[in-house]
Amino acid sequence: MDETLGTALRRWRDRLSPIDVGRTARRGRRAAGLRREELAELAGLSVDYVVRLEQGRATNPSAQVVASLARALQLQPMERDHAYKLAGLLPPREGTISTHVPAGIQRMLARLGEFPVGVFSADWTLLSWTPAWAVLLGDPGARTQIERNLVRSVFATGPRGLAAWPVLHDGDDLKRALVADLRTALVAHPHDHGLIDLVTEMRSSSTDFARLWDEGAVGLHVSARKTIVHPQVGEVTCDCDVLTVPGCDVRLVVYTVAAGSADAEKLEFLRVTNGVPTHDSIPPVPGPFSTP
């Protein structure tokens, strides 16, 4: 029998342990792998849509849906490309930005759920985040894909600006690093129309961006202290580290606080009052782009 996207999704779902996505494998659980409900939650899709995909009744998923499913199922790059082909889509072409989050990174996020961690693509669009990130910085799931782009947020003015990312920035350091990052990304991904459009948009809409771009801004992301203004607890000062993954487009942004500090107490208060569990019981949130 010919393989379909539905049969492949069921096979990939059956092989993925709940522990791999940060869930507890409870005794008496009948499903060896992920349930449809769990896959739907991780991919940001409705359960009904996942059922229709597996049964072959939904036959034209978008590229964003396939990308979300590939992340949720922790597919390897070749498997992800196979999923695109089964859906009748072309896999991401060489020279474009990948939104694929490697399985190892997803498993690490599932075990770092107590920390605010966000995973960004090469154009600085937020792809995935831990519940603690949502508690500290606001729920990204309530924002559009455009609003989840850090470059737009940092350089924008008005309602699309810093209100969505309540961080007190430290001079031009972050801005320079972001511009330098985009310049490097444009060399590495010359065929990515979204990235080209982003640079064009920012050069025309932000005088700061245009100035730094025309100056040929060069900068690196280094460890820095940032202050988040939170409506429940006020200012929370965190150490921010940006980690890159060799051979992969994604960047991990990790916020930590010193143990026993007043900032640690504020972060713990936010976790408790917002129902964020601790340790390895927390799954990362893939950050849905589409919810049929």
Rank of each mutant, 00 (worst) to 15 (best):
Y49M: 07
V65G: 06
S153E: 03
V253L: 09
Q232N: 06
M1S: 15
V229K: 07
P190A: 02
G171T: 09
G88M: 05
H230Q: 09
A224T: 00
I19E: 14
W124I: 02
I196Q: 12
G56A: 08
R23N: 09
R80L: 06
T278A: 15
V253M: 01
A122E: 11
L45T: 07
P18L: 09
T291P: 14
H82D: 08
S206E: 10
A259M: 08
G260F: 03
V154Q: 00
P18S: 08
V21Q: 06
A103F: 12
L182E: 02
V151C: 05
A83Q: 12
V51T: 15
L39I: 03
V21I: 14
G138A: 07
R93H: 15
A132L: 02
L9I: 08
P159Q: 05
A40C: 09
P159C: 09
A83L: 12
V101D: 14
V233F: 07
P18E: 02
D48H: 07
A134K: 01
R23L: 15
L109A: 05
R80W: 07
H221G: 03
G6S: 12
A103I: 10
R148V: 08
T200P: 00
R15D: 15
D181R: 06
T130D: 09
V117L: 13
E265F: 05
P277R: 04
G216H: 00
F289E: 14
G33S: 12
T7D: 14
D20C: 03
V101L: 12
V65L: 12
H169P: 13
P288G: 10
D170C: 04
R183H: 05
G234R: 14
A70I: 13
S205P: 01
S46C: 08
D192K: 07
P288D: 14
E235M: 09
A103P: 08
L267Q: 14
D249Y: 05
P246H: 10
Q232C: 01
R71H: 07
L69A: 10
A103L: 08
L174K: 06
I228V: 10
D2L: 10
R10L: 10
K266N: 06
S223T: 08
T237F: 02
G33K: 04
F120D: 05
L186H: 05
L16V: 13
L90W: 04
H169S: 14
L252S: 10
D172L: 01
L75K: 04
Y255E: 09
K226D: 12
N274Y: 15
A142C: 13
A210Q: 07
T144S: 12
G171H: 08
M78K: 11
R203Q: 08
R26A: 15
L168G: 01
S68N: 11
T144W: 06
D20Q: 04
A185W: 02
V272Q: 15
E265H: 03
A58M: 02
K175H: 07
E3W: 01
V285G: 03
R36Q: 15
S153F: 00
P166F: 09
P286F: 06
F289N: 15
T256I: 08
L137W: 07
